[in-house]
Structure formats: structure tokens, C-alpha cells
Simulated scan of single mutants.
Amino acid sequence: MWRHIASNAVTFLVVALFMLGGVILWGQNQYTAEGPLDQAICLQVKPGSNMRRVSSDLADQGAVSSATIFRIGADYEDKTQALKAGSFLVQPGSSMSEIVDTITRGGASTCGTEVVYRIGVNRVSVQVRELDPATSRFVERAEFQPGEDETPAIYAEKKQQADTRYRIALAEGVTSWQVVESLKAMDVLEGDAGDVPPEGALAPDSYEVRPGDDRAAVIARMREAQERLVAEAWEARDPDLPIKSPEDLLTLASIVEKETGVAEERGQVASVFVNRLNQGMRLQTDPTVIYGITKGQGVLGRGLRRSELRAETPWNTYVIAGLPPTPIANPGRASLMAAAQPDETDYIFFVADGTGGHAFAVTLAEHNENVARWRQIEAERGAEAAGNASTGGN
């Protein structure tokens, strides 16, 4: 009888172990299998939260089939204590394993609210936007100009949330003075910005920052990025360029940056200035004259006077030969590469064509025709504006 009981016990134990193994295998498959989520969500993990709350939230939003398996899997992978606070984008079909990896890996939030400080040539603005998980596109919630517009309540509200991300978007063509003054006004940064960096030394780009970041450290990041870009462009330059140093390349690129906002034109504009340098002609470019007046401290806000075109300043390329002594703005990667590898053309002249771009010419006669055409366009626009003003715009 004892032998029979022992045999039954062994059989029961084998069956139990077999069933337990099956349950474990099933749980493992559930943990790594494609999840039930059919539309992306933004999962918010608040500071002080734990895996139990997160698993319950995921189950409520239909992202996991079992909150229990999710917690067991996270514990088995020894990731329960690695939970990070933030807002994380969970893609459709994400497995429990993938979600656990997303919320424990660390790094910046991948969705939620983002505050973008845009430093432009003509204005500085702050944009509050949120990522729509369904479309993976940002939706603007508010935008304002600090110091001019009333600060919207949502800005203060989002600044209190620990998972709000911050970004500085530096536009091509801004001056170093504009950057420093803008950083001084950003209330999420701390510390002294220091002296204004040399013109052209800052890379136009998008920089993620955190509340409390040091202003001087942010500027140092911008300088390091520009040093890399200039070195890359200098290394890739055409060997027969009439420039002698990376500093000359940076100066030429800054002029190209200020002369055109049309990406496809950069190479042509650069070719005009290279051709002029090769022929010993003066560059005669208005942005250098403007820089001689403003020194990069703000926007001129009006047209140039004839007396200013004749005035002798180190930057007035109607008066001086060759390149000015410094850049006149901070050029981006595209303008640096255009200066390093300009288009091969015979162009010597260019003038606005009324579309936002320019009409290029090889001879002075062709250029004069283009100028006359542009003057006509200006006159027609002036007459149209005057007509609209006299009729109240109707």
C-alpha cells in the first residue's frame, strides 16, 4: 500500500511540475508576445510611482493583457526597482518586455509636453506643445513672445510637472549676441552666460536642456558643435577655393547664410562670392554693411541708406576688398557645406526675383535687366499696398 501511495505521489508531483512548467512557459510567452494595444499611448509615470501602479494603469489602457504577468516579468528581469519617472510613448503591439524596457532604461521622456524656446533672427518665442501618440506629431498648446506677450497659464502649469521636456531651437543666421541675450531671459536656465562668444562660433541646432542647466555650459555645447561642423566642412572643401583658413570658410558661410533663405540657392550664392574673390572683385553684399552698423546686436529694421553703403567699416564689403574680418552671423551646416563646395557657375551677380529667391547673372547687362525687373516688381507691390490702404484693405 505504501508503495502504491508513494507511486501516486510521485505521479502527482510530476504532473504538478509539468503543469507548473507549462504555466511558466505560457507566462513567458505572454510577457514577450505582441501586446493588445492597437493605438499608441503616452504612459505617464509619476515620481514616487511603483510597478504595481504602472501595471494597473497599463491594464486599464489596454496595453497589457495581465498586470500580474507584467509585474512578475519585471521582477524576474530584476527591473522593478529601475522604474523611471517620465512620459513614455508606448507603440501599438508593444510586448510587456518592451514596455518594461522603455520605462526602466532611463533617459529623456519620449512623449508628453515639450517647451521649445525658439531663437530666431527677428524674434524669440516660446512654444508649449504636446505629442499626440496617435499621429506621433506635436500639437501646439500655446505660443508667446517673452517680455512682449502675456505668459499663458499652461506654461507655468507645465513647468511644475517633472516630466516636461525643454528644448532650445537655434535658427540659422542668428548672431552670438542674440543667442546670449535670449539665454539670459530663459527662466529654466541658471548661472551667468559669460561674455558673448565670437561671431559664428555657435551651431544653429536643437538642444535639449533641463531645468537648472548652466547657461555657460549650454553655450559651450553650442561652440563644440560648431567647431565640429567647421572642421568637417574644411576637411571636405574644394581644393581650389580662394580662402586660406577655417575661419575664412566660416566667414564666407555666414554671408551665404544671410543672403538667402532658399536652401537650393546656397550653392549658387556661394559660387558668386567665390567667383568674385577669384577675380579680385569686391563682394558688395548688404548683410555685411548691416553688420557693420548693428555689430549683430539686434535687427536694423529698415533699408540701408546710400551713406551707409559708402561708410568705411571693417565689414562694409562695398568698401573693403575680400572677406570681412569676422563672420556676420552663425551659419548652419548647409551654408558651411555650400561655402566649402560651391556650385560651379560663372555667376557674378544676383538680385531678388520677387519669389523669395534670386535671379543670377554672368554679365552686368544681364544683371541690370534683372535689377530693372525687380524694381518693377517693387513698384507694383508698392502701388498695390497703397491701393489697399486707401480702400481699407477691401
Rank of each mutant, 00 (worst) to 15 (best):
T326M: 04
I243L: 12
R302T: 05
L17V: 15
F273W: 00
T391D: 14
E143H: 00
M19E: 01
V90P: 03
K295V: 00
S254Y: 04
I5M: 12
G292T: 06
P204Q: 12
V218K: 03
R223N: 05
V209L: 11
N278M: 11
Q81F: 05
Q28L: 13
P133D: 01
T11N: 09
W234E: 00
R210M: 14
V174R: 06
I243R: 09
V218S: 04
T80G: 09
L300V: 06
D343S: 13
R221S: 09
F18Q: 00
G332S: 10
A361H: 12
K158G: 00
R215G: 05
P197T: 07
I99G: 02
R3A: 13
I328S: 00
N388K: 15
A339N: 06
A40W: 00
A33F: 00
A253Y: 07
G62L: 08
K295E: 13
G27M: 14
H358R: 01
R375M: 07
P146Y: 04
G107K: 06
T135Q: 08
Q160K: 15
D75W: 11
P314N: 10
T363F: 13
D78L: 11
A108D: 15
C42H: 07
Q297N: 14
I69P: 04
N8G: 13
T355G: 13
G147Q: 10
Q81G: 04
S95G: 07
R71Y: 08
M51P: 03
R165H: 01
T285H: 02
T294R: 03
E140M: 14
V126A: 02
Q91A: 14
T345Q: 11
V272M: 07
G73T: 04
Q297K: 15
V54E: 10
S109E: 07
L202H: 11
F88T: 01
E148V: 15
L252I: 03
D75E: 14
S65P: 00
R306I: 11
G73A: 02
L323H: 03
L241T: 07
G354S: 10
Y347K: 00
V269G: 03
A85T: 11
S94E: 06
A386E: 15
E190M: 07
A185D: 14
V90D: 01
V319I: 15
N29L: 08
S94R: 05
L309I: 11
R53E: 12
G322M: 09
A365F: 01
A386L: 10
T345C: 09
F88Q: 02
E264A: 15
M51F: 10
I293A: 05
Q226I: 05
V180R: 13
I243M: 12
A156H: 13
N370S: 13
G292F: 04
Y117V: 06
G301M: 07
A85I: 01
G382D: 11
Q30F: 00
G22E: 07
M51K: 01
V174S: 06
D205V: 02
Q39K: 10
L170E: 02
G212M: 11
Q178M: 13
W315P: 05
Y31D: 05
A253S: 09
S307I: 12
R373L: 07
T288G: 04
